[in-house]
Amino acid sequence: MDLENQGTIKQLVDEHGAADLVVVLGAGELEAIKIAAETVTSGDPAYAGPLAGVSLGLPVFHILEAALKDEVPSALYEEKLGMYAMLYDSAELSTTLGGFRGGAG
């Protein structure tokens, strides 16, 4: 993940506390999704940015997971993300990110 973004996320945790924060990802490829998820849970896997060795343990989701879809007004969801529904396997995303959320997902 971009180093500036790592720094910003760290600041946001300091400012708001981790309790109410949720990270929502939009990356297109599974590999990129995993890297981002790892960065905001157990730390930057590349050991390059401000989150290297920092375990924030933030709950992390992908915007195309079914659990999130149910919370968004369906017309808006269809307008913005209808195209993606054909391209992504929502269940696969949930399984992948569930692994980073531990029991919380």
């Binding site: 993940m1 973004n5 996320i9 946001l12 708001h16 109410d20 924060l21 949720v22 990270v23 929502v24 990802l25 939009g26 990356a27 297109g28 490829e29 990129a32 981002a36 905001v40 933030l58 915007i63 195309l64 999130l68 968004v72 808006l76 969801y77 913005k80 993300l81 993606y84």
Partner: peptide
């Protein structure tokens, strides 16, 4: 409190934020 990290060739940040 949501932190939206989008991607240009996936779902961009402003779209995640709106939803």
């Amino acid at each position: 409190k949501v932190i939206a990290i989008g991607e240009r060739d996936g779902v961009p940040g402003p779209v995640i934020a709106e939803l």
